[in-house]
């Protein structure tokens, strides 16, 4: 099966310190892969190598079989859309202006917005439930609304891979579920989704596979129920927790306290 994203022994050194060390990871079309790990385990650093905000010190990052380093940035952005942890919007721009930025990688120099661009922007805005915010100044939005605007901009790129860094940050519970439902739907349509999540209960519920980072190393990868055993939860996350089936027989993570 063709891989959308392939990390081959990727290592990143920042200031002489190995932040990410020898990570191998694959994301296939149609799956949601959750990257989990405690604070400072290197999740964001690893994601930054995917959209070329950072070049890995060792190893290779492949996007649809192409090494990211040799792919023109525009071509990369046409294939892979990403959001950062704290989307920044200090400029006086409307929501629609920001989402239209997702089309820049599809537009030629001086080329105006085409019909297909408008369709992509409208679809991204509808998918993230931002219709009524279209004309709003992004600086007047709440943190959660900005997060959705950032996701809409990434969707407007019409990527085949979506990389989301803490997409549920700042969102209230309803919008957390809405975003994760959306990623599940997008994956069902064939998108490959890689996201980081702090809430392991949501990770169990929404991710097809989990990759666990600890101190920059990949310590486990696989289906959530296999990966998150009591021992790993205690060792990596420092919590006493276990996965149990709920009344419907679905696996649910039960957090009991500190380990």
């Amino acid at each position: 099966m063709d891989m959308r994203v392939e990390l081959r022994s990727v290592g990143v050194e920042l200031g002489g310190c190995a932040v990410v060390d020898g990570v191998d990871l694959e994301v296939r079309p149609g799956e949601v892969v959750g990257l989990v790990g405690p604070n400072g385990s290197g999740k964001t650093t690893l994601l930054r190598t995917l959209y070329r905000a950072l070049a890995p010190t060792t190893g290779t990052v492949l996007v649809e079989g192409h090494p990211v380093a040799s792919l023109p940035r525009r071509r990369l952005a046409q294939r892979l859309g990403a959001t950062v942890q704290e989307p920044e919007q200090r400029a006086a721009l409307r929501v629609i202006d920001v989402v239209e930025q997702g089309r820049v990688c599809h537009q030629g120099w001086l080329e105006p917005l085409r019909a297909e661009d408008r369709v992509a922007v409208a679809a991204a805005i509808a998918a993230t439930g931002l219709d009524e915010f279209r004309e709003r100044d992004v600086r007047t939005l709440s943190g959660g609304e900005r997060q959705r605007v950032a996701i809409a901009r990434a969707l407007a790129q019409q990527p085949r891979i979506l990389v989301l860094d803490e997409p549920t940050n700042h969102l209230d519970l309803r919008h957390q579920l809405a975003i994760l439902d959306l990623t599940a739907r997008l994956a069902a349509d064939g998108l490959a989704v890689l996201l980081t999540l702090h809430d392991l209960r949501l990770a169990v519920r929404y991710c097809d596979r989990l990759a666990v980072l600890s101190a920059g190393r990949l310590v486990a990868a696989g289906e959530p129920t296999e990966v998150l055993d009591t021992e790993l939860l205690a060792e990596v996350f420092g919590v006493r927790a276990e996965i149990r089936p709920n009344a419907d027989g679905e696996p649910v993570l039960d957090v009991l306290g500190l380990a």
């Binding site: 930054r48 959209y51 070329r52 905000a53 940035r73 525009r74 990369l76 952005a77 046409q78 892979l80 859309g81 990403a82 959001t83 950062v84 989307p87 920044e88 919007q89 200090r90 400029a91 721009l93 202006d97 920001v98 930025q101 997702g102 820049v104 990688c105 950032a150 901009r153 990434a154 790129q157 990389v163």
Partner: peptide, 14 residues
């Protein structure tokens, strides 16, 4: 315009 969003986002936008 993309620089308004920060360097990482600008890189992600191509």
């Amino acid at each position: 315009n993309l620089l308004h969003a920060g360097d990482d986002t600008a890189a992600a936008l191509g």
